[in-house]
Design a protein around this nucleic acid. Structure first.
Lengths: 175, 175
DNA sequence: GCAACGTAGTTTCATTATGCAACCATTGGA
DNA sequence: TCCAATGGTTGCATAATGAAACTACGTTGC
């Protein structure tokens, strides 16, 4: 559970190593899957980039102008998302020699997270009148149903109906 | 869609104001509900604090030791969560004069977000064997079903089956 | 072919956020 | 009353963020 720290000591010189240089907590390698998700997309911009990518944006400039973010930050984020296998760079699409950023299945798999965030805002925001859009079923134009947690057999579950269990040991062949 | 910037100019002296002092993007007031959620809980620690609170943690020291985070950061985060109406300070619980942090309905409403993050990790993480726990239905001990997006009439929806619509104008009495 | 422009970044520098450690104020217990 | 535990705050060092300037390459007009 304890997040460990990312030590950046480059070890360039032969110094004695008393300088700790420990900053910015990392959740990489943490056993909690929520922390692991946050390690990949738990920053201010990544989920918004994914949101725009789900809406079809692909080019650096499109993300930059749509999100209004600094280009250096965007570059860092896109690289990180590619490193995490959430985006992939595709060589082209419209014939030009530029490359594009497209969502991988892992990236598209983040959609429920975005929907959960959206619905939380819709339900609990202090100023819901400022929310400009609603997510609707394309066929009917009606709002999407609220995400609900269900058991394998379909029973509706509240948080109190759930618990955490240690992950079963990985199954090994002929054992 | 464009996030605006938080200007911190305190205006202490009578300077000419040419210094812009614009830092750290804020999504406060953004029309996108996802950005609004991120404004409240889109940082490295808030969701983990909520996770622990859902598991029953209430005291400052419990959060601090369980999450292993710096006390000053924890104090800032708790204050922010209280300001956002996600946590509330309760005067006591075990008789002592200390106060506690308990989730409000808004805070408990973030549970689907945590479940979505967890399931995303479980499905797409590169090293799923490092994930220590699984979320199960307390009654049967079986894993919770994956969150799914459905239309009002129950049809299962993919991202492509959805679209964004402008929010209808607020209904006004006798108009 | 080459000048001008657009795209996609990188670099530089200032400012803010994070993290650790040390300190302080109350509370609670002996 | 003294002393430890709880719940913070403060100070300082380091890392992340952001705006703007700069660079490299692709594309277009001529």
């Amino acid at each position: 559970m304890q997040p460990h720290k990312r030590v950046i000591d480059a070890g360039i010189g032969g110094h004695d190593g008393t300088e700790t240089m420990v900053k910015r907590t990392s959740f990489e390698g943490d056993a909690c899957p929520i922390a692991r998700s946050l390690e990949a997309i738990g920053d201010w911009w990544s989920l918004l980039i994914i949101r725009e990518a789900l809406f079809g944006l692909r080019r650096f400039g499109e993300f930059q102008s749509k999100l209004g973010m600094a280009k250096n930050i965007l570059a860092v984020r896109l690289r990180a998302l590619v490193d995490h296998g959430i985006l992939a760079t595709a060589p082209a699409s419209d014939g030009s020699a530029y490359s594009e950023y497209v969502l991988t299945p892992k990236g598209r798999g983040a959609f429920p997270i975005l929907v959960a965030l959206r619905q939380w805002s819709e339900e609990f925001d202090d100023h819901p009148e400022e929310i400009a859009t609603i997510l609707v079923d394309r066929a009917k134009g009606r709002p999407v149903k609220k995400l609900e947690m269900r058991a394998e057999d379909g029973r509706l579950l509240t948080p109190a109906d759930t618990m955490l269990k240690p992950r079963p040991a990985p199954r090994r062949r002929s054992d």
